[in-house]
Amino acid sequence: MLLIHCPHCQEYRDEEEFSYGGEAHIVRPLEPEALSDEEWGDYLFFRTNSRGIHHEMWYHLVGCRRYFNATRNTVTYEILETYKTGTQPTITGANL
């Protein structure tokens, strides 16, 4: 069971209040029609699936109903930080 800190509500809440949104910081291509099938498939389906530090989106479904990002270790499940959408993580694989 994860205890997740919502950066909007500024509170630790139970995992069941949240819904998982998958990998964060994936930018939707501005001109999808200009992409090759490989590039479009890569955007849609291919993820880093990191073993270790992972930046991911969470949605506070039964709270403020807003998305935010979390940096989590996918082996220990420890949440290292949560931060608002549009901002960058302070903890990355490179500086850990």
């Binding site: 994860l2 990998e23 082996v75």
Partner: peptide, 13 residues
């Protein structure tokens, strides 16, 4: 479980 993980355990709920 809804989230990515390699820990061979999941959430109780």
């Amino acid at each position: 479980d809804s989230y990515n993980g390699y820990g061979q355990r999941g959430s109780f709920h």
